[in-house]
C-alpha cells in the first residue's frame, strides 16, 4: 500500500506512554499517526495536516482542555466534520464530564473510556472511516 493512501490519525494526549503504545498499534494497522501532547499543539497539527480522524484526551494542562480543543477544531471549517473520538478515564465516573452527545459541536464525536480496548477502538475507527480504509492486518 502506498504512503499516500494511508489514513492519518492524530493522537492528542499528554501521557507519552499512552501515545507510544496506541501509535504503535495504529501504525501496525496501517495508519499514519500524528502525535500532539496538548490541545494547542493538537490544534496546530490538525489545521496543518488535516487528519482523517482525531483521538483526543480530555484532562491535559487544563481540566477540560480536550473539550475546548474540540470546540476550537469545530470552528475551523476544514476540521468541522473530522471525526473526533474523545478518550477519557473520568467521563463515565464523573458526572461533570457527561456531555450530551447531541450537543451540536459533538455531532461527529464519540466518547471512549480509558483504558481503551484496542481491538474495539480499531473497529470503531474502521467503521467511521468507511470502506476507504483497507483492512490492514485483519
Amino acid at each position: 500500500m502506498s504512503l499516500e493512501s494511508k489514513k492519518k490519525i492524530l493522537v492528542v494526549d499528554d501521557d507519552a506512554d499512552f501515545v507510544e503504545s496506541v501509535s504503535l498499534f495504529l501504525e501496525h494497522n496501517n495508519f499514519t499517526v500524528l502525535k500532539a501532547r496538548d490541545g494547542s499543539q493538537g490544534l496546530k497539527l490538525a489545521r496543518m495536516e488535516q487528519p482523517d480522524l482525531i483521538l483526543m484526551d480530555v484532562m491535559m494542562n487544563e481540566r477540560t482542555e480536550g473539550f475546548f480543543t474540540v470546540q476550537e477544531m469545530r470552528r475551523t471549517p476544514e476540521l468541522a466534520a473530522t471525526p473526533i473520538f474523545i478518550l477519557s478515564a473520568l467521563y463515565e465516573t464523573q458526572a461533570g464530564f457527561r456531555v450530551k452527545p447531541q450537543s451540536s459541536w459533538l455531532a461527529h464525536d464519540e466518547f471512549i473510556a480509558k483504558p481503551v480496548d484496542m481491538r474495539a477502538l480499531l473497529e470503531k475507527i474502521r467503521a467511521r472511516l468507511g470502506a476507504g480504509q483497507a483492512a490492514g492486518e485483519g
Partner: peptide
C-alpha cells in the same frame, strides 16, 4: 477527588495500554 482519580488513572491507563498492545501484537 477528581485530581486524585485522574492522577491514579493516568499511570494505570498507560500500563494497561502497553500490556494490551504487547498481548495483541
Amino acid at each position: 477527588v477528581t485530581f486524585v482519580s485522574h492522577q491514579l488513572q493516568t499511570p494505570l491507563v498507560a500500563i494497561h495500554q502497553y500490556l494490551d498492545v504487547l498481548k495483541q501484537l
